[in-house]
Design a protein around this nucleic acid. Structure first.
Length: 572
RNA sequence: GGCUAGGUAGCUCAGCUGGUUAGAGCACGUGACUCAUAAUCACGGGGUCGGGGGUUCGAGUCCCCCCCUCGCCA
């Protein structure tokens, strides 16, 4: 039994995420977690909300709420939606937790002790009326290059020139519109990533089995231009983790907080500590996942994220870990995803374009979404969601191939032999052949799942469902029953067992339907079919089963057209 | 402008270190079957693998140039 640590990139607290966000990290991470649990491994699956930073403050202000209350509420909302999608986190933490405060301050203290923090005094734009320093992108003004009047402080959207906020003519705050801005000196902490460059590079180079997408991004940041840059890890904000050096005050840094990208990945660790706290366990319980000196040396750590997150997970966070000089667990395999597009364009949170997680669940149950998203995961390139494709995939794969198989077997069995597993006959050559074929396919499925080849694993699972229909079609128990009812009983006994095995194999993708299938077979044995011939005899003759409701319903053309229109424009 | 990944059947995509007639699913056509959610199963039609050069006995698969899409960066 292996020990497997899995983290999904943590979604930002501000608002409900869309399907592109879901398929880029949480959902494939859940698939992998469920699969490894099903194989009997010890799994720790961690996610959290990323709660700090200016956008959270502004969203709270807009809602007229204290930011802490706002975050608590939005965390509860996101947690509920995660449950709705059956995301099987062992813990869904919060980056604003006391655990993360302590750990973030701890890492900063260790980095400082190791001479990897330097203080930098710089001039930043301060908005007197807003009472705060303004991040670059919250300053707007006229572009000195092209004259565009809504250029942002970091870049002009019109001429794409990179800007410094002090370049702007007639600068104003995008928060309040105030032009009462001034330059103020402020002091910040920088993580000296340059000093860690060689260590990081050696570590990246050792990861020869990582996807090109991942290592190429990392190497680009390491080597492009002036190479890896030192990074500011503090901000002049109120909402965040107060800057401390371990548990000691940090002179000169009073009133400042750590930058959200510094504390967010540390939350992976902190959330595991939160898990221990929530379950009444001691520190050793979470440290055995994260500290190689405290039992984590046999842990394999997998991270899942969208490609935009790769630099932080290949460089910034490892810099924090390596720089601490302490034996924390580094990621072993990093699975990154491209983007999911929506109907010819991008999903857009700001414009409400596309389908958001809460809306998806209002329209259809989670299995429908899980199946489509995972079987079309944007692995090798960006992928495209269209309603036509969604409808075709759900109707064909789920309703026709799998759902109908369960339906035809259970209804035939119930009408001919009653609702207990029939005892007659014995498995013949075609049953033996099916079992051999299925066994080979299961091994292929296992190998794809282990390799996190999500789309290919989905295709293999579908092929596994199909051979059930092939078998039935050629065995034709509805014909055989007329001349040799004993043999027909054996065929049905095999088919019922097949449904139970399919429940186990399908569970990582479509957990609700799998549970329905298992319950209908009157079983609770989720043991992975390592021994398939034995597993195909698991349901004993005489054991009762039931005919379930149709597992999946079909999406009609009218529904598709309706949804297509409903989600095209602005979110209401 | 630089970099990454792509451009393969109507659609969504597979094709590892170059090797027999380029694959899958959907859609389409024909047939079989009738247990089932007008489902299933079998067979079939359909592609000059973005364009042009080159290396090779042989290239979708390697090299060069060009065009287009997506993203990141300057």
């Amino acid at each position: 039994m292996a020990r497997i640590l899995i983290t999904s990139a943590i979604p930002y607290i501000n608002g409900i995420k869309h399907l592109g966000n879901l398929v880029g990290s949480q959902l494939p991470a859940d698939l992998f977690a469920r699969y490894n649990r099903a194989r009997g491994h010890e799994v720790m699956f961690i996610c959290a909300t990323d709660e700090h930073g200016t956008p959270a403050e502004l969203a709270a202000a807009k809602a007229g709420r204290p930011v802490a209350d706002y975050c608590a509420e939005m965390h509860a909302v996101q947690a509920e939606i995660a449950r709705g999608f059956r995301l099987s986190f062992d813990h869904f933490g919060r980056s604003s937790s006391a655990r993360n405060h302590a750990l973030t301050q701890h890492f900063a203290g260790r980095l400082a002790d190791n001479g990897l923090i330097r203080e930098v005094t710089e001039k930043m734009i301060y908005s007197v009326d807003d009472g705060r320093f303004l991040p670059d992108r919250y300053v707007e003004g006229t572009c000195p290059n092209c004259g565009y009047d809504s250029a942002r402080g970091d870049q002009c959207d019109n001429c794409t020139k990179q800007l410094d906020p002090t370049d702007l003519i007639n600068p104003r705050s995008t928060i309040s519109g105030s032009t009462n801005l001034e330059l103020r000196e402020t002091k910040h902490l920088y993580l000296m990533q340059r000093a860690l460059k060689d260590k990081l590079e050696a570590w990246i180079d050792s990861k020869t089995d990582w996807p090109v997408l991942t290592t190429s991004i990392a190497k680009k940041w390491l080597n492009d231009g002036d190479g890896l840059q030192d990074r500011g890890i503090t901000r002049d904000l109120h909402w965040g983790i107060p800057v401390k050096r371990g548990d000691q005050p940090w002179p000169g840094m009073e009133g400042k907080v750590f930058y959200v990208w510094f504390d967010a990945p540390i939350e992976y660790i902190a959330a595991t500590a939160e898990w221990a706290d929530a379950n009444g366990l001691d520190d050793a319980a979470w440290q055995r996942w994260w500290r190689t000196d405290k039992g984590a040396d046999d842990v394999t750590y997998y991270q899942f994220m969208g490609k935009d997150n790769v630099p932080f997970h290949t460089l910034s966070f490892p810099a924090t870990i390596l720089g601490s000089g302490e034996p924390w667990k580094l990621v072993d395999y990093l699975k990154s995803f491209n983007y999911l597009n929506y109907d010819g364009g991008q999903f857009s949170t700001s414009r409400g374009r596309g389908v958001f997680m809460d809306q998806a669940l209002q329209v259809l149950p989670p299995d429908y979404w899980r199946w489509w998203l995972l079987s079309h995961a944007p692995e090798s390139s960006d992928a495209e969601f269209t309603w036509e494709n969604f409808q075709a995939s759900v109707n064909k794969d789920l309703a026709d191939v799998l759902g109908n198989l369960v339906s035809r077997v259970t209804k035939f069995a119930a009408s001919k032999f009653g609702t207990t597993v029939p005892a007659g006959g014995s498995f013949g050559p075609s049953e033996t052949a099916l079992i051999a074929d299925l066994g080979a396919r299961i091994r292929e499925y296992e190998s794809l799942m282990q390799a996190m080849e999500v789309r290919k694993a989905a295709a293999e699972l579908r092929a596994i469902w199909v051979i059930g229909n092939e078998y039935l079609q050629s065995a034709a128990p509805w014909t055989v029953v007329k001349t040799d009812p004993e043999q027909a009983q054996a065929m049905i006994r095999l088919s019922l067992n097949l449904i139970r095995v399919y429940a186990i194999l399908s569970q990582p993708f479509i957990p609700d339907a799998a549970a329905t299938m298992m319950a209908a077979m009157g079983s609770d044995d989720w043991t992975w079919p390592d021994d398939l011939p034995q597993a195909m005899r698991s349901l004993a003759p005489g054991q009762p089963f039931s005919v379930p409701e149709n597992l999946f319903r079909k999406i009609t053309d009218e529904e598709r057209a309706d949804w297509q229109q409903r989600f095209a424009g602005v979110r209401t």
